[in-house]
Amino acid sequence: MDLAAVSEELAEIEGQIADIFRALSNGFQKLEKIKDVNRQSRQLEELTDKMRECKRLIKEFDTELKETESRNDANTRKMLNEKKQSMIKELNSYVALKKHNLENNKRVDLFDGPSEGFGEENVLLASSMTNQQLMDRGNQMMDETDQSIDRAKKVVQDTVDVGTETAAALKAQTEQMSRIVNELDSIHFSIQKASKLVKEIGRQVATDKCIMALLFLIVIGVIAIIIVKIVNPNNKDIRDIPGLAPPAMNRRLLWTPN
């Protein structure tokens, strides 16, 4: 059955996995001909990277398989599950082959560990495992992957929430700073206006002081003249000042009428 008729995504993933399997087959054949230990190690590292990529694609294949499961009939679902199990078996065979090469070379297995491959218990030849064992182990690994994805999603959501709160706080602070700037502009304008008013008041006060000083001098002059008149009433210099000249003497007539 053509996978493209079921899902284009499944067909594309299956094609990528097939390409990796061909590369793994050619790579292990090339590895048998390499005699240098360092070159063997580098070749094994390259093959390990390809197996990691193949594992990731098989997980994507299983995820897409679950999404399209409701649209397929029983025969199609059976065929797709058998296809997935076949790919898992083939990958495990290459994992076992790699481990065998590492043991022969007495090197540490770079593909072992909790986050690599399908686990030590799954590194078995396909002939020594049943379909049910492969399916159970595969489902367990998929569940663990889903849990890891859920945790990652939670971390991302928490990060988004923190970013949203930070953006809101920054927006509020920006608005507050804008209001402060506007208030400072108003204060600056008021200070300029008050400065002009003070200058005008200063000029007016200076003018008033000049007038008062002039009046004061006039009053002082008048007082001085009055004092001089009192002290020396015959002073001719002040005879012509109205109100300050001495009184005119009585004139007698040279003749008197009869």
Rank of each mutant, 00 (worst) to 15 (best):
F21P: 07
D19A: 07
N38F: 02
I241V: 05
N258M: 13
A11T: 02
S190T: 03
K84M: 07
Y94I: 04
V228R: 14
T256P: 12
R71Y: 11
N139A: 04
T63L: 06
F61S: 01
T68P: 06
V162N: 11
A194D: 10
D185C: 14
L44P: 06
S127C: 09
Y94A: 05
E45R: 00
Q173N: 11
M1H: 08
N235M: 01
Q29N: 08
Q40S: 06
D158R: 03
I88Q: 05
L3N: 00
N105A: 15
Q173K: 14
Q147H: 13
L24C: 05
V181H: 15
N131R: 15
K89T: 00
R151C: 12
E9R: 05
K153N: 12
A169W: 12
F61C: 05
Q204M: 02
I218T: 13
G27Q: 01
I88D: 01
L80N: 08
F189P: 06
E116R: 01
N131A: 00
I227G: 04
F118H: 07
S7K: 01
N131P: 02
L3C: 03
N72F: 09
S115E: 06
L3Q: 04
S86L: 10
R107K: 03
S70P: 00
Q40R: 15
T130Y: 11
A18N: 03
S86T: 06
M142G: 01
K50N: 00
R137Y: 14
M212N: 06
V231M: 04
